[in-house]
């Protein structure tokens, strides 16, 4: 079924917010899909990076409840491949920040098994806590 998507003021405000937070001109995304092809983690995502860009273009706040934004590992593969010079990794970070700043953590650091804690390098913990806790 084809339906016309109506963009409300709320949708526009969300797009503006993410554009400001990420510094990415999200409306310039031409939906070529190269980022999705390049992304090494796409198979674990529920929507692809290009779909994430599209939902933000449409100002759909529900994008903050996708798995995608948390699965993105900020590996910058999309960053170097996007033909329009956009940076989906920054958009994903902005979306994570929207959640983390509401004090909604993606992981509970007290649930990491002791056996894992004994072997994980600090670099893993520091980066995970920065990306997944607020």
């Amino acid at each position: 079924m084809i339906s016309k998507t109506e963009i409300t003021a709320k949708n526009e405000a969300f797009l503006r917010r993410i554009t400001e937070l990420s510094g990415v001109s999200i409306t310039r995304c031409e939906q070529c899909g190269i980022c999705s092809v390049a992304c090494p983690l796409v198979s674990g995502m529920d929507i692809s990076p290009a779909e994430m860009m599209r939902t933000v273009q449409l100002g759909q706040e529900e994008v903050t409840s996708t798995k995608t934004i948390w699965v993105c590992a900020s590996c910058f593969t999309c960053t170097v491949r996007c033909p329009r010079g956009l940076d989906p990794s920054k958009v994903a970070e902005a979306l994570r920040q929207i959640e983390l700043r509401k004090a909604i953590d993606y992981m509970d650091i007290s649930t990491i098994p002791a056996e894992e804690m004994r072997q994980l390098p600090q670099i893993a913990l520091v980066s995970a806590f920065r990306k997944l806790t607020g």
């Binding site: 090494p40 983690l41 674990g44 699965v71 590992a73 900020s74 590996c75 593969t77 993606y106 992981m107 990491i112 894992e116 994980l120 893993a124 913990l125 980066s127 995970a128 920065r130 990306k131 997944l132």
Partner: peptide, 20 residues
């Protein structure tokens, strides 16, 4: 050689890291 190893997901999803 340039593919991400899964980085910090080793903390919260080690099977993803093992797959990569």
């Amino acid at each position: 050689k340039k593919v991400c190893c899964g980085a910090f997901h080793t903390v919260n999803d080690k099977s993803l890291v093992a797959d990569l």
